[in-house]
């Protein structure tokens, strides 16, 4: 077994979680947002397993299994929502989903412009 101090292992979980958080905050493609959410869930699970390993308890692994099942359910529903979004808006840009706003901003033109460039 490894003799790394628990600080380092928890630090790894924290770094992975923060990378996922940056992804959620920064990316505009909803597929990448969902992937970043997966990274964050996985990092939380890593922290659970680290704690369970250091106190020699099986509870950490039990919690990881629950997180795993939750992530699977979340991803299946999330991907179905992405499919619906792509069907209705023909894009995966999160900024298009602003129809609850009072004064909707006109939809993003960048993709159509680029597609016209590619076609021409």
């Amino acid at each position: 077994m490894i003799q790394v101090s628990m600080h380092l292992e928890l630090l790894l979980a924290a770094i992975l979680f923060l990378l996922g958080l940056i992804g959620v905050l920064v990316r505009r493609n909803i597929l990448f947002v969902l992937m970043s959410a997966e990274i964050m869930l996985n990092a939380a699970g890593l922290a659970f397993v680290v704690a369970g390993a250091h106190w020699m308890q099986a509870e950490g692994q039990v919690m990881f299994i629950f997180i795993l099942a939750m992530a699977a359910a979340e991803v299946s529903v999330g991907l179905a929502l992405i499919l619906q979004m792509h069907r209705q808006h023909k894009t995966v840009d999160t900024r298009v989903l602003n129809q609850l706003k009072d004064d909707p901003v006109p939809p993003v033109k960048e993709l159509t412009e680029i597609q016209e460039e590619v076609n021409s």
Binding site: M1, M6, G52, A53, M56, A58, Q61, I65
Partner: peptide, 18 residues
């Protein structure tokens, strides 16, 4: 953080807890 000794926690213990 207490530096306890780590050891293998196999699927048997996890299953019993689960």
């Amino acid at each position: 953080i207490p530096s306890g000794s780590t050891g293998v926690i196999g699927p048997r213990r996890v299953g019993v807890a689960l």
